[in-house]
């Protein structure tokens, strides 16, 4: 097979572009390449990348999960509520968050797999429901220690040091915990999806569900699992988010969904996989992170961020839909 420029653009376009970006930023601003800065880029994208990984799992199984952003924000509020208002321990907060995530994943699965609602619509509905629910316990206010509750009393709890460490601690003073978590989760899911028979079945369902079912796969079970995995990963993202900002911020979830979906879609194009893949999603998230970090260093106004993200998303869509061979 010859490497036509078109082929090259599809296979390596994003990586070449990423290398080019790094080079440009490194020349323009030498501080860009410092190890510390590189890790802060990773820290900045870790949560979005996690959510993107979740979306990717559902995409692999031929579905879509738009509710990850709303779920992360919801979980972030739940963590703060559990710590500050209920004065809970680190462990109980984490368990609560993961439990909520699994519950939401099951809810999505019931709507999509059991009731047959189209995935985009069902998860969009779930997103709006969560966005409303997260505001209810505090009447729409953010949660910080000393919060005055709706009944007039003052919340007694605080963010525990252990919990905060999840978002802020740096292992060996260099590696932020969220980056570590991302690495572990992404590597585990990548192993499962790329190298085990379970992953093979997920991909088979996404490619031709009928063929997978006739080959004997319990396809409904796998689709349920995809949504539960996605929601669980998203709730891990929500825990890290709460730990990083150290309070329950009602507006923390803004834009998370779009960023995550964008990362997953950009990931399609990485290395010419032309299909959802975990590694690609992480690269996609890092790509956007590098771009934003570099632009910030070059003193570009922050409100260019969405423009850049939108342009990158549309570029990725153009590559996936436009350059790649048309698929049925």
């Amino acid at each position: 097979m010859t490497l036509s420029p078109r082929r090259l653009a599809i296979d390596y376009g994003l990586l070449i572009l990423l290398a080019g970006l790094v080079a440009v930023f490194a020349v323009a601003e030498p501080a860009f390449l410092r190890v510390n800065n590189l890790f802060s880029i990773l820290q900045a994208v870790a949560i979005v990348a996690l959510l993107g990984v979740g979306v990717t799992v559902t995409m692999i199984a031929g579905g879509f999960d738009l509710s990850v952003g709303g779920l992360a924000a919801f979980v972030q509020m739940a963590a703060a509520y559990s710590l500050v208002v209920l004065d809970g321990s680190t462990g109980s907060a984490i368990l609560l968050c993961l439990g909520l995530g699994i519950l939401v994943g099951l809810g999505n699965a019931v709507l999509i797999v059991r009731l047959g609602i189209p995935d985009l619509l069902a998860t969009l509905g779930m997103l709006f429901l969560l966005a409303g629910l997260q505001l209810v316990p505090t009447g729409g206010r953010s949660i910080a220690p000393g919060l005055i509750l709706l009944d007039g009393s003052t919340a007694q709890g605080t963010f525990t040091d252990g919990f905060l460490a999840l978002g802020r601690h740096r292992v060996w003073d260099i590696l932020p915990v969220p980056v570590l978590v991302l690495a572990v989760v992404a590597a585990a899911l990548w192993l499962v999806m790329a190298w085990t028979r379970f992953g093979r079945v997920f991909y088979a369902i996404g490619g031709n569900e009928l063929a997978a079912r006739l080959a004997g796969a319990p396809t409904r079970l796998y689709r349920v699992a995809a949504y539960v995995i996605s929601a669980t990963v998203a709730s891990i993202g929500g825990i890290l988010l709460a730990a990083r900002i150290g309070r329950g911020d009602v507006s923390a979830g803004n834009g998370l969904m779009l960023d995550a979906v964008a990362a997953a879609l950009i990931g399609h194009a990485v290395l010419g996989a032309n299909r959802p893949n975990i590694l690609g999603t992480v690269v996609g998230a890092v790509f956007v992170g590098v771009l934003l970090n570099g632009l910030t260093m070059l003193n570009a106004p922050y409100y260019l961020q969405d423009l850049v993200k939108g342009a990158v998303l549309i570029g990725a869509l153009a590559v996936t839909y436009g350059l790649a061979p048309r698929r049925a």
Partner: peptide, 19 residues
């Protein structure tokens, strides 16, 4: 905030009814 939740529930209920 409850209104928002109500709307979300209503939409999901509609989707369930529809599909």
């Amino acid at each position: 905030y409850w209104q928002q939740v109500g709307t979300g529930v209503l939409i999901l209920l509609t989707l369930i009814l529809a599909f």
